[in-house]
Amino acid sequence: MSNVFKGTVAALALLAAAPAAFATDKVTMQIDGAAVPFYAPLYAGVEQGFFADQDIEVEFIYAGASDILTNIAAGNVQFGFPNGDAVVAAVANGLPVKVVHTTYQRGIGALLAKADSGIETYADLKGKTVAVSSLGSPNYLQLQVGLKKAGLTLDDIKLEVVSTGAIVQALQSDQVDAIVFSELRKYNLEGAGVPVTMILSNDFLPSFGNVVVTSDKLLASDPDLVKRFTNAVTASYEWVIDGHVADALDISFEKYTPTWIDQKALLTTAFENSFVASVWQSDLTKEKGLGAADMDAWQANADTLKEYGVIDVAPKATDFVVDPSDIGK
Rank of each mutant, 00 (worst) to 15 (best):
M1N: 12
F5A: 15
F5E: 12
G7L: 06
T8G: 14
V9S: 06
A10S: 03
A11C: 06
A21G: 05
A23K: 15
T24C: 10
T28K: 08
M29T: 13
V36D: 12
V36K: 05
Y39C: 08
P41Y: 02
L42A: 04
Y43S: 00
G45N: 08
V46Y: 00
Q48H: 03
G49H: 02
D53Y: 03
D55C: 06
I56W: 03
V58D: 01
F60S: 07
I61C: 03
G64E: 09
S66N: 14
D67W: 06
L69E: 05
A73L: 08
A74I: 02
F79A: 03
G80P: 04
F81E: 04
N83K: 11
G84K: 11
G84Y: 11
D85C: 12
A86M: 14
V87N: 06
V88T: 14
A89K: 06
N93I: 12
N93Q: 12
T103L: 13
Q105Y: 01
G107F: 10
I108Y: 09
A110R: 00
A113T: 03
A113G: 15
A115Y: 12
D116V: 02
S117G: 11
G118Q: 04
E120H: 15
A123N: 04
D124M: 10
K126L: 06
K128N: 03
K149V: 05
G151L: 03
D155P: 07
I157A: 06
K158R: 13
L159K: 07
L159I: 09
L159D: 02
L159N: 09
L159G: 11
V161R: 08
V162W: 01
G165K: 12
A166L: 15
Q175D: 12
V176I: 08
V176C: 11
D177T: 14
A178S: 09
I179W: 07
V180K: 03
F181Y: 13
E183F: 07
G191H: 09
S201P: 00
D203R: 08
P206K: 01
S207D: 13
F208G: 04
D222K: 11
D222M: 10
D222T: 09
D222W: 09
V226Y: 03
K227Y: 02
V233A: 00
A246N: 09
S252V: 01
S252K: 01
F253T: 06
W260T: 12
A265M: 05
L266A: 14
T268Q: 09
F271T: 10
E272L: 07
V276I: 05
V276L: 01
V279R: 02
Q281E: 12
Q281H: 10
Q281I: 15
S282H: 13
D283Y: 07
L284G: 08
L290H: 02
M295W: 12
W298Q: 12
W298S: 08
W298G: 07
Q299E: 10
Q299T: 11
N301K: 07
D303Q: 14
Y308D: 12
G309P: 04
A314F: 09
A317F: 04
D319M: 04
F320N: 01
F320Q: 08
D323P: 08
P324R: 02
D326L: 09
D326K: 11
I327M: 03
I327D: 00
